[in-house]
């Protein structure tokens, strides 16, 4: 197994405020990592630092063996940010155009979305059951549909790593099940490495093989079975280890 995300002694600061301190872990190809921690514990900060959006204050991150500051194969990493509450209602972007933005990292200038690209976008939208939304304005589809569109945008480049930041909050229970079934399929069949930020410990117990638990510092990193013995309710393991955090399990 090869390490495709290697984090060494990582510290991140916002001005004088320490957001992450001395985090180290190695994520292997094909891992499904549940990234958990309390609000303000640094989960999104860690994801953004992996994605190159925030600079490390100390330590370093290697992606596919390359220092993240020199890494330029961003098409290998798909990102689904937290729910898009901030989509500008005036923005005249169609769903198809938004999904096509996920292809830009693999393009050389002058960038162009080709007929073959549009065929791939059509196929993905059909596979995700949202092809009928392709020509609609992104601002005019529901929050749950927007979330599916953003997942399509993250998947269209066929990434080797998928980073998802609380992806299921806007989804109804049925869509949520379909969403996680798709992630499981990607992880098991395409060997896509998944880093899932969530407060839903139930999904972690069901799908993740590793747990990255941070509260500004590293609390735990390793196999789920080391954190919580098989057969035991994972929510109770969190409660035992960190009683002040309200963890919940999906129904």
């Amino acid at each position: 197994m090869s390490s495709i995300v290697e984090i060494k002694n990582l510290s991140v600061r916002y001005g004088a405020t320490i957001a992450l301190q001395n985090i180290s872990c190695q994520i292997e190809q094909g891992d499904f990592v549940g990234l958990v921690g309390p609000n303000g514990g640094g989960k999104t900060t860690l994801a953004k630092t992996i994605l190159g959006l925030l600079p490390p204050h100390e330590g370093k991150i290697a992606l596919f063996g390359q220092d993240s500051r020199e890494f330029d194969e961003w098409q290998k990493i798909g990102y689904l940010p937290q729910k898009h509450t901030s989509i500008n209602p005036l923005f005249p972007a169609s769903v198809g155009e938004v999904v096509s933005l996920g292809l830009l990292s693999a393009k050389k200038r002058p960038k162009n979305i080709t007929t073959a690209d549009w065929q791939e976008i059509d196929a993905l939208l059909k596979d995700m059951g949202i092809f009928d939304l392709k020509s609609k304005l992104i601002s005019q589809v529901s929050g749950g549909q927007q979330q599916k569109v953003m997942l399509a945008r993250a998947l269209i480049s066929k990434p080797e790593i998928l980073i998802l930041d609380e992806p299921s909050t806007a989804l109804d229970p049925n869509s949520r099940e379909q969403f996680f079934a798709r992630l499981e399929k990607l992880n098991k069949e395409a060997k896509t490495t998944i880093i899932l930020i969530t407060h839903d410990t139930g999904y972690i117990g069901q799908y993740a093989n590793k747990l990255l638990y941070i509260d500004r510092k590293l609390v735990f990193f390793g196999n789920i079975s080391e954190f919580c013995p098989k057969g035991k309710d994972i929510a109770s393991c969190f409660e035992k280890k960190d009683g002040h955090i309200i963890w919940h399990q999906h129904s």
Binding site: L53, Y79, P81, H84, V98, L101, L104, S105, R109, K111
Partner: peptide, 20 residues
């Protein structure tokens, strides 16, 4: 020439950065 970069950065600057 920079159409797609301008479009992406205008729609979602943070996401645009993650695509290089």
């Amino acid at each position: 020439f920079f159409y797609w970069d301008l479009f992406s950065a205008t729609f979602d600057e943070e996401y645009a950065k993650t695509t290089g």
